[in-house]
Design a protein around this nucleic acid. Sequence first.
DNA 1: GTCTATACAACGATAGAC
DNA 2: GTCTATCGTTGTATAGAC
Lengths: 218, 218
Amino acid sequence: MVHYIEMIDQPSTEPSTRDRIVTTARELFFDQGYNATGISEILKKSGAHSGSLYHYFPTKEDLLMAVLQQYKELLQPMVIGPARERASQPIDRIFAVLHGYRLLLEATDFRLGCPIGNLALEVSNSHPAPRALICENFDGWMDQVRTLIEEASGSLPPDTDIDRLAVLLLSTMEGAVMLARTYRSFEPFDQSVLALREHFEQLSLLGTTWSKPKNLEK
Amino acid sequence: MVHYIEMIDQPSTEPSTRDRIVTTARELFFDQGYNATGISEILKKSGAHSGSLYHYFPTKEDLLMAVLQQYKELLQPMVIGPARERASQPIDRIFAVLHGYRLLLEATDFRLGCPIGNLALEVSNSHPAPRALICENFDGWMDQVRTLIEEASGSLPPDTDIDRLAVLLLSTMEGAVMLARTYRSFEPFDQSVLALREHFEQLSLLGTTWSKPKNLEK
DNA sequence: GTCTATACAACGATAGAC
DNA sequence: GTCTATCGTTGTATAGAC
């Protein structure tokens, strides 16, 4: 609420103290995890002081929630949008989203994968409120991917379960990123994505040869 | 080294102090994560005292490595063996392994998923030595699953890439467990597994009909 | 190998001046 | 809203008697 007003009132000036704190916390949580990142570290890197941080965020958990809220807002401009621009064909756009995570692994030498996945495993048991926000992040991802799948449905059998496919893509991506980061190798990621590709190719095959006239348009 | 002697010398008596410490640490790391678990908590729950713990494990990281070593030894008796006994058909045995994780999610109300996956994301960036042991755990899992796939290769196309399939199963399982734990719901897990089932069914279809006349059967 | 006592740094969080 | 100073606790790890 105050948040939106700030975004309007400060169109293109330097970021507010609050935003610097959230962004810094996001970066540190991403790289080191939630528990391994101390408040003092966030203060030092952001240049803010403890009085300011605790003015905005009464507890560390509140700061985590602001970070997760920011991730929700970054999904479109940072993940989905760029992926859409990198590919023109419907099915390629789906895999362009996955490829985005590979680019991140590459750019960070396997340090950074999916920030939501990291936090999901670390805080789900102990922090119920952030856990709900993590669900919303996953929901947003699957919503977007579902849309991409729908746009590609011409190449899929008419009875394809799109929700199921979106869940499969998210599950496999999360696991593949986990393995790549652990092995410090693209191989498990690439193999997983390739296997998904084959699955989609099989579906395409079924979609074009199976049904009756259905998708004989052009 | 001393480890094996102890196992032989104490066939069925109560566990050694060392073993109690490792097992307790394993349970706490599993439920709470590595960073969120304090040494004092391990000492309290195991009944050991700090002098004993630091006698065996000079640092907390050394204890983590002993835990990861124990996981390697538990893979067969706790994961693969039971799965093999729960199913008789080759392909069913593969999915019985995945189902084992569902049973664990169910038994723990979604608190516990895959212990290796949890630790992988939490410590890979900061703890190189444990990271190597996590790789060995993943390797062991994929070795076992690869064997299960080979045993089922009669139902698969002859050119099936078995390694790739094993990686896909691990990636998807890890992601599916992550989502189930986050949502506190079986749905993402079940949907992911169902999608994998469909992938295997497609492969079976190709395996039996392919060889010659493409897919013009029936 | 096991126990008690404790060192010392880092943690999350607070108080109060400005 | 920002700053400094600091509280009380917990963190990992040690020392030394037995």
